[in-house]
Every structure is written in C-alpha cells, then in structure tokens.
C-alpha cells in the first residue's frame, strides 16, 4: 500500500519525500478536524448530564 503510493509519486527521492510528508500532514489534519470529533461522542467520556435533557453525547 505504502510502496504503491511511493512508486506513484512523481519526481526524485527528495520530491517524493516532501510529497509524502504533505500527504501525512493532510491525513492528520482531516483526522483531527473531522474524523475524531465525529468519533468522539461514540465514546463514553462525554456523558455528563442526567437523562432527559438535550444530552451530551450518548
């Protein structure tokens, strides 16, 4: 999987390394910005209210 990505990146080793780093940063950004905030309410740390009220994350 990673070998496939590496082979399909253009340029010499340095360009590829830089592009890989960018890709990694982009993935981490998407995870922190969108995926983790979405996944977090599925875990129990947000249940701080007693039931029957707007509900902090079930």
């Amino acid at each position: 999987m990673y070998g496939w990505i590496w082979r399909h990146l253009p340029g010499n080793v340095w360009v590829r390394a830089a592009l890989s780093l960018l890709l990694v940063l982009a993935v981490v950004y998407v995870l922190f910005q969108y995926v983790f905030p979405w996944a977090e309410p599925l875990l129990p740390f947000g249940d701080v209210t007693v039931d029957g009220e707007g509900g902090a994350a079930r």
């Binding site: 981490v28 922190f32 983790f36 977090e40």
Partner: peptide
Amino acid sequence: LFVVHLLFWT
C-alpha cells in the same frame, strides 16, 4: 493519534 486527540488536543 486518537488518544493524543482526546488527551491533549481537546
């Protein structure tokens, strides 16, 4: 990464 997100980032 998710643990880092929970413990530090939030």
